[in-house]
Design a protein around this nucleic acid. Structure first.
Lengths: 238, 238
DNA sequence: CGTAAATTTGAATGGATTCAAACGTGGTGG
DNA sequence: CCACCACGTTTGAATCCATTCAAATTTACG
């Protein structure tokens, strides 16, 4: 049961996020006849997933990309011993599964961390638009570069130095994502597998930060209010 | 003093590597009038740099991308304390400085590791070709995805687990690059800053590998012959 | 041949992991 | 409503691994 094209439905509540969408943005919109756009967007699904839901699995060859509208998605690889390593996080405005555009199978397993709202865009839509709207290539380049930036951050900020430094960098990053201070909480386990440290170490450092007043817990579970000045000091120490 | 367009000079010795070039490949070649191509390629420089030469510096806004024809280039970030962290390696066929295509300043400092041969391609050439040869977009996507693959590798294989595991993964990767076993040697210091460990630890592990017969030194300096079976065992252990 | 740089090795320290147990919280069923 | 269980977090103690600082050794190079 396919719903109607959400992007062209003025009553759709997710409309506010479209300006961040690689497909439906001002530049692209201007180029295309409205009917053609509507045709293409008709098959875009808007989906809301519960936390810990599998979006796609590594090595599957998918036929869709996912633009995240709300929440966080983790891209993970499984190490030879079975433990999971989070390669990077996909935040609102990012696209997961870009590799399908070059006809490669998914290179990670994608799992929601929070309640996540995504637009599922079939490969055929992107290819169709690519022919009729050259500007899409530029938009896609932006997303691609964004993925590289995030990957680089995983190396430099999240996988380098002492556990304290990594946690501080992570907290600063997460709080840079949310203006209001909600929606981007990670379990100690996920922190660990994103930072390349154990769950216990993540817990110890966070507990220590709380005692030192660097972070204060919000009524919201696992949400923090961060003292950005002091955290930055830790992140840049040594 | 500009030399003539190397790509169109049949006597050029680097011609064999052109098939791996994003700009000058079969698909692209077929689409374009020869004269237009020659015009565009005229300003492409082929350059050979000594080891440890700076290609570009982070935060500079450049007007060129570099396709590597021979050798290895390291992309580094400098940590707050001044130490360098290698984010990833650029190998033959890869492009360094892709971020200039979205008009962003360079996101790393690029330094040659070996004697490196590159083609320096001005941004204007790429943009010019982009208009006249739509297939270039697909080629660029491939390079972009390649960069992401390498960044992911930096996280999963080079920044995760014990020092032994990381070194084993690195040696396997390096030996997968060279069929003949030459050209891709790293100093202990560079190994360390790529793997997120100290120079001493890198040295200790390599020395241990040599004693255990996992690698044997070649007359070539810092070049190894690896026992891939045994190294894979170490990389997948635990 | 002699000096600078890179590699190797040693010993002590420090930090993270491991294994274990205690604690808190949410949800289920009696 | 409470007892109980499952699950995530916290804490502890011992061990292991990597770092640090230092020195010895080798290699590169003028």
């Amino acid at each position: 049961m396919k719903r109607k094209a959400i992007c062209t439905d003025p009553s759709w509540s997710g409309r506010a996020h479209c300006s961040r969408c690689a497909i439906r943005n001002r530049v692209l919109f201007a180029d295309l006849p409205v009917e053609a756009l509507n045709d293409a967007l008709l098959v875009i699904d808007d989906l809301v997933y519960a936390p810990n839901h599998l979006l796609y699995r590594m090595d599957d060859h998918g036929h869709a990309v996912y633009t995240v509208r709300r929440g966080l998605v983790k891209l993970v690889r499984y190490l030879p011993d079975g433990t999971e390593r989070i390669v990077r996080l996909v935040k609102p405005g990012d696209i997961a599964g870009l590799e399908t555009l070059i006809n490669a199978p998914y290179k990670h397993t994608a799992i929601t961390l929070n309640e996540v709202a995504v637009c599922r865009i079939p490969l055929s839509v992107v290819e169709h638009l690519d022919l009729h709207a050259p500007h899409l290539a530029q938009q896609l380049m932006l997303r691609w570069q964004g993925a590289i930036d995030d990957a680089d951050r995983s190396v430099v900020e999240f996988s380098t130095g002492m556990a304290e430094t990594r946690i501080a960098n992570l907290l600063l990053y997460l709080s840079s994502l949310n203006d209001d201070g909600s929606g981007f909480e990670l379990s100690r386990h996920d922190m660990g597998s994103l930072l390349g440290i154990t769950t216990e170490t993540a817990s110890r450092v966070i507990a220590d930060f709380k005692r030192r007043g660097l972070v204060t817990e919000l009524p919201n579970e696992n949400a923090f209010r961060c003292d950005e000045k002091l955290l930055a000091k830790i992140a840049n120490a040594r």
